Simulated assay, not measured.
Amino acid sequence: MLKLKHLFSNIDLATMIVSNWEYDDLEPLQYWNISSNAIYPFKNKEEMYFLRFAPNDEKHKDNIEAELEFLLYLQNQGYSAIQPKTSKQGRLIEVVDTPWGQYYASVFNRVKGDCLGRVELTEKMITLWGKALGNLHLLSSGYNPTGGKRRSWEDHLEWIKNVLSEFPNQEKPLEEVQILETYFKNLPITNDNYGLIHYDFELDNVFFDKETKEITPIDFDDSMYHWYGMDLERAINSIKDELEPDKVEEAIKSFLEGYQSVKPLSEETLDQLHVFQRFGNLYGYTRVLRSINEKWENEPEWMVNLRGKLEGVLERRSEQFSMPLIK
């Protein structure tokens, strides 16, 4: 998540940045969304595209390049995933200097269909969702980037440690870093259980096209090298958050059946999901802590309300910190 100071809409900034791509209708820019990136829709030749950008103090250019290389690899392998669009200069990333600072920007095509969070989650739909993740992991296991590599779980734990060290009273989160680091360093790494994962393969980031019956994930911004079980845990966590309690067990069963229809899944991986959940909680906690750190006088109401909600997120995600890793 971006720092709160970056969550303000700025149509002038978006207009400056999007001018690096072909467009003929900027009216959709008003339907912006900002979270981990600023997202502004626009049109060109009746097609909808999404401008994504973030300040250079929030993102790393080489990490974005590695993300886009993976997306192109998936496309070449026939896997349906969101795709980047080149700029007027033929680049997938534009580094744009503006009066508000320097930004890294990319543009993506609009994915057909609706996100799974807005459709009826039938057993068949959930099975397709699980199958799509299994296929993604199969392709990841054969992926060898020609450019730089995405960050790994180890890089992220180091980042977490550095961020937490800047804040007072973070003894338990720092203990959690050590607990997870020790656990993961003793976890076997094989081509079957480890690779480049999506990390946010949840309902809102996966689309279904009724016409083609195709599942298409978006938002690979948090992809990292990790055990494939991390992706499974994030998806299952999404099921637990979004579905009625009496539907969760069957939904998880259908998801795992879909996954296993294309990629084997060991009992060992399933036994590790509670540890991956701890990683997700720690990573999310640290991002939120960093985001809400700065405060200003006379903050707008939406920011005050958002800060209050995020403080609640910190409390929930920290409940297990420093506790022994017992299933």
Rank of each mutant, 00 (worst) to 15 (best):
M1P: 04
L7F: 02
S9N: 15
D12Q: 15
A14Y: 04
T15S: 15
I17R: 01
S19R: 12
E22V: 03
P28E: 06
P28L: 05
Q30H: 12
Y31G: 06
N33T: 06
S35R: 03
N37S: 10
K45S: 15
E47N: 15
E47T: 10
M48I: 14
R52H: 06
F53I: 11
F53M: 11
A54G: 15
E58W: 04
H60E: 15
N63D: 13
E67Y: 09
L68V: 04
Y73M: 01
Y73H: 07
Q75H: 15
N76V: 02
Y79H: 11
S80M: 03
K85C: 06
K88A: 00
D97Q: 14
Y103H: 11
A105N: 01
V107Q: 10
V107I: 02
N109E: 15
K112T: 14
D114I: 03
D114S: 13
C115F: 05
L121Q: 15
E123N: 11
K124P: 00
K124G: 03
I126Q: 03
T127Y: 12
K131S: 15
L133A: 08
L136S: 09
L138I: 10
L139G: 12
S140G: 05
Y143W: 11
Y143G: 05
G148P: 03
K149L: 13
R151M: 12
E154W: 00
D155H: 12
D155R: 00
D155F: 07
E158K: 10
V163M: 07
L164S: 07
P168K: 13
N169A: 11
K172A: 04
L174D: 12
L174N: 14
E176R: 13
V177G: 08
V177C: 13
Q178A: 11
I179S: 10
E181W: 14
K185T: 07
L187F: 13
L187E: 11
I189T: 13
N193H: 12
L196K: 08
I197N: 00
Y199E: 09
Y199Q: 08
F201C: 06
L203C: 06
N205D: 02
F207I: 04
F207W: 09
K210L: 04
I215H: 00
P217H: 03
D221W: 05
H226M: 09
Y228I: 06
D231A: 02
L232S: 04
L232E: 01
E233S: 05
E233Y: 08
N237H: 10
S238E: 00
S238I: 01
I239C: 03
I239L: 14
K240M: 00
L243V: 02
E244C: 10
D246P: 00
D246Y: 10
Y259C: 04
S261H: 05
H274A: 08
F276W: 14
G280A: 15
G284T: 12
G284Y: 12
T286N: 04
R290I: 00
R290E: 12
I292Y: 07
N293Q: 03
E294I: 07
W296N: 11
E297P: 02
N298A: 13
E301D: 13
W302I: 08
M303Y: 09
R307W: 11
E311W: 08
L314C: 03
S318H: 10
E319R: 15
S322C: 07
